[in-house]
Simulated scan of single mutants.
Amino acid sequence: MLIYLIRHGQTDWNAEGRLQGQKDIGLNENGRRQATENGVRLAEELGDSAAAFDYVASPLGRTRETMERVRAAMGLDPLAYRTDPRLVELSFGDWEGSTIPELQRVMPERVEARARHKWDFIPPGEQAESYEILSWRVGAWLKSVDQPTVCVSHGGIVRSVFRIVGGWSGNKACDMNVPQDRVLKIDRDGGLIGWL
């Protein structure tokens, strides 16, 4: 079962190193360019089979705009896709909007605890999640995929896929760089294939 997984294009918060989580931050100009280029890349990869894929995105604005730019670059109706709430980014709780250096100055012990056990760490805040909790949502979504799919989501979702499909350790998965200008090709049942 082939899945092409795309992280949304860059936002200003990404460029500043701010924990974005579930805040609805829009793409910047670089992010719009990345989204369009990923659409061109996918069009070359999928060719005439592109229209037969299912297209799904996280409901946040940055992922929806990325999907619409990807589909437009592929020559497909930009709005003919669906959203799935299971694909929304990890919640960083009270830390959303902050950078790690900013948090280090006010709560160094919590930042150090996160660095030691990043996969299982839950930031402060009522809605905050660990990567482990996020992976439960992602695992349920992966099990529901029943046709070849193009998905636009977030860095945390991709890291969960590294863990679930790739079989990586939690700490290795959440420390991996997830580029915004590439497309990850996976076989849900056979493992990670690689970056386009």
Rank of each mutant, 00 (worst) to 15 (best):
G167Y: 13
L87P: 00
D77N: 13
E132V: 05
V70N: 02
G156L: 05
R71Y: 02
I122K: 14
T63P: 00
D84R: 06
K118T: 11
H154M: 07
F121D: 12
L87G: 03
G61A: 10
G61L: 08
D120E: 14
G170Y: 02
A50C: 13
M176S: 15
L90C: 01
V150W: 02
I100N: 09
V161E: 03
L142I: 15
L90V: 15
Q104T: 14
R163A: 13
A72Q: 12
K143E: 13
V152Q: 01
A128T: 01
Y131H: 14
S98K: 15
C174G: 07
G139Y: 06
K118D: 09
V56Q: 03
G47W: 07
G156F: 09
A73P: 01
W95M: 14
R116F: 01
E112M: 08
T99Q: 13
A72F: 07
P85C: 05
V106F: 15
S91M: 08
P78N: 11
V56H: 00
R69M: 08
R69E: 06
V158L: 11
N171C: 07
L103V: 08
P59Y: 00
V111W: 05
P101E: 11
E102I: 14
F121P: 06
A51T: 12
N177H: 15
W168L: 15
F121Q: 12
I133G: 06
S169Y: 10
E44V: 10
W168C: 11
R71C: 01
V145W: 06
N177P: 06
S160K: 02
R62Y: 01
L46S: 12
E68D: 03
V145N: 08
V70H: 01
M67S: 00
V161Q: 02
G156A: 07
R64G: 00
R86S: 06
V178A: 09
E102Q: 15
R137E: 12
A73R: 04
S58E: 01
P124F: 10
A51F: 09
D84A: 09
G167D: 13
W95Q: 09
I122L: 11
A113F: 09
V88N: 11
R137D: 11
T99H: 14
V150F: 03
F162T: 03
R64W: 02
W141H: 12
R159W: 07
V152W: 02
C174M: 11
A128N: 01
L76Q: 02
A52N: 12
I133W: 02
T83N: 13
L60R: 01
I122F: 09
W136R: 13
E89Y: 04
N177V: 13
I122T: 13
R137H: 15
T66L: 00
M67R: 00
A57I: 02
E96Y: 06
E126K: 12
S91N: 13
S144V: 05
L79M: 03
E126N: 04
A113G: 10
A51K: 14
M107K: 15
D84I: 04
G155Q: 08
S144L: 08
S144K: 10
A173F: 06
R64E: 01
L87D: 02
V70F: 04
P148A: 11
R163D: 10
S153N: 04
T63N: 05
V158K: 08
T66R: 03
L79W: 11
Y131R: 07
A80E: 12
P108S: 07
E126Q: 10
H154I: 07
R163G: 06
G156S: 07
V161C: 06
D94P: 07
D77M: 05
R114L: 08
A115K: 15
V152F: 01
V111Y: 01
H154E: 11
F53N: 04
